[in-house]
Write a protein that binds this DNA or RNA. Sequence first.
DNA 1: ATTAGCACTCTATATGTTTAAGTGCTAATC
DNA 2: GATTAGCACTTAAACATATAGAGTGCTAAT
Lengths: 360, 360
Amino acid sequence: MKTLEEKAEKFNYNDLNERSREILLGIIEGYFGTANPVGSKFIAENSKLNLSPASIRNIMASLEEAGYIYQPHFSAGRIPTAKGYKFYVDSLMKTEQITLKEKEDIEIRLTSANRDLNGILNQVSILLSDLSHYAGVVLAPDMSEANLLHIEFIRIKEKNILAIIVFANGVTENKSFYITKDIKQNELTRYSNKLNEIIEKKHCSLDGLKEIIVEEIHNDKENFYSILNMEIFSSIGNVSGYWDYEHYDNCLYVGPEGDLIEEPEFSNNEQIKFLIKTISDKKNIIKLLGHTKNSKTKQIFIGSEEEWSEISGLSLITAPYISGTNMIMGSIGIIGPLRMNYSHVIPIIDFVSEFLSGII
Amino acid sequence: MKTLEEKAEKFNYNDLNERSREILLGIIEGYFGTANPVGSKFIAENSKLNLSPASIRNIMASLEEAGYIYQPHFSAGRIPTAKGYKFYVDSLMKTEQITLKEKEDIEIRLTSANRDLNGILNQVSILLSDLSHYAGVVLAPDMSEANLLHIEFIRIKEKNILAIIVFANGVTENKSFYITKDIKQNELTRYSNKLNEIIEKKHCSLDGLKEIIVEEIHNDKENFYSILNMEIFSSIGNVSGYWDYEHYDNCLYVGPEGDLIEEPEFSNNEQIKFLIKTISDKKNIIKLLGHTKNSKTKQIFIGSEEEWSEISGLSLITAPYISGTNMIMGSIGIIGPLRMNYSHVIPIIDFVSEFLSGII
DNA sequence: ATTAGCACTCTATATGTTTAAGTGCTAATC
DNA sequence: GATTAGCACTTAAACATATAGAGTGCTAAT
């Protein structure tokens, strides 16, 4: 009987020894290939280690005790746990290079169409699905701190105004709203001209503009600001809550999931339903993408019972994208099975997020 | 042995006799309730006809011969065929009234938010999913013949221009594009002012505007149109191909399908995959919604092997929506199983399409 | 420290049996 | 002549049982 200390030394719980690493890697890569539990015989035959199945079994038992792998039932091979995948991604994986062909594909598909931002983000979600054969997702940026470029008001009909807000990064938002007193188009034009003067001078955000206006009204000697209808301003004021939780319908783009559901894990009916519900509900995906957006670094969420249970059985790889001013950002991601081809998907996410940051 | 003529008389292939209709209705409604094949005993006990199971069996055999029902296997009950559903929808079904609560729900959810058209259409797709518990879909309108309200050009950076095109129905399109020679903002403003003058006078579409400009340039004595940069015009000229097959990514809104996949037909793995692929591929749905848009009437597509096989095993109920000028339109729809609750869904589609036509 | 050998466990597969549902047909009945 | 009771038949689904195969943990030998 070995003591706990001896075991801890042997397998070095924090950073597995060479042999354990090799076997864990073998199990994970074997499982990637077949989607079936991997047994000691397979490892013995396929790894560089010249060990008998019996020795491998010893090490496997320890890896299982340490939580990196598990057995679906007594006489089955081993499957990586979330902890196992995590260790793989952090320490074992050799990241592939993105191919030239993929690079070209990304460049062509994201630059050829002269679309607005919504069109580009939608295109990115489709592109990510196509490249990964999983499901691409894109979280639209939050515009609340973006600098303005231009504001325009158009009278659609009596008491109904359309506000067009153009941000410095090319994003436009349109919002139609009603006011209590009708305003003629030429008065609206004077109003927007005045706002655009301020915008050009101060390079401010929507909130910033609001502050400036309030101050100018305060010092308004010439009474010029009588034309500033505060009703309009409060209507456009909250346009910028682009993806708060009330309007989350419009902030997540999901690429086609036709390839993803062909993965063998989704031959189980419960799993496919969980996947579709998770994706079509959107809320949890938005929450996780929001994490990445806030943390400003690439993140990998591996869903288990204990951690990220909202995507239990699924993995989500995400990275933020940023505008030229480093202010505005959202995030992109790929959803797949735990058994995801991390070494292929991660460079795709890296390249697309970087490329996207460059063009918006 | 009966002759064919006698049978034809008895069951009146074109318009089933009273007794056959009653039994077909019983089978269909029974199948709606349980999703299981319906046998003669069930009909004998649940229909108004006081007939023994044996008599019902006779009639069932004829209904099967005529193609309205079929048996999944020899000793099973009967299931309606696509032809059976069609007959039900056309002749047997009593349409329910939409409830006051549903009406209010629709009105609140489509008027409360002051969104742009894209936001409304997205909201409609979600609303349809919620009300029907199936999957709502919405095809965005084709803007190529829509009247213009306003055009605006904004210089984003050197040689990069953002065009904002506002249509009379409140739809806005934004398109960023590059030109070969830089143009200052004040020249762009002069240009758009001129275009807006024409728009206000002539109430024309984008194509119409193009024609007018070409003609005016032809008669341009004062050389005013030197500022009309044809490069710009050709760039915005093809903005309006809103949902041609090259850009179909952006023209279909699909509501959440979480409820739909809980229907018992999707406990079969093949069927759920077909559903997800059909929905995520979009092309076929767009095609079918396009039919309705062009025919300008409500339509019901019941997918079988023979007809509408692209949605085999699914039903799609669609109706067009139109703008105030009766020119611009798209269509809305609900996708569900063949065993869809038609009498509930059809009035929802009717009301929503009418209501939507009223507000855009 | 490693491994051959073996008993053991569990799944997957095939096979046979039973049950229940529902049919089509025939002959009797209204 | 229309209706129906009765019955033999078909099939799927549920259940039980046997078998093969994969893979394990443990022990004793190397």
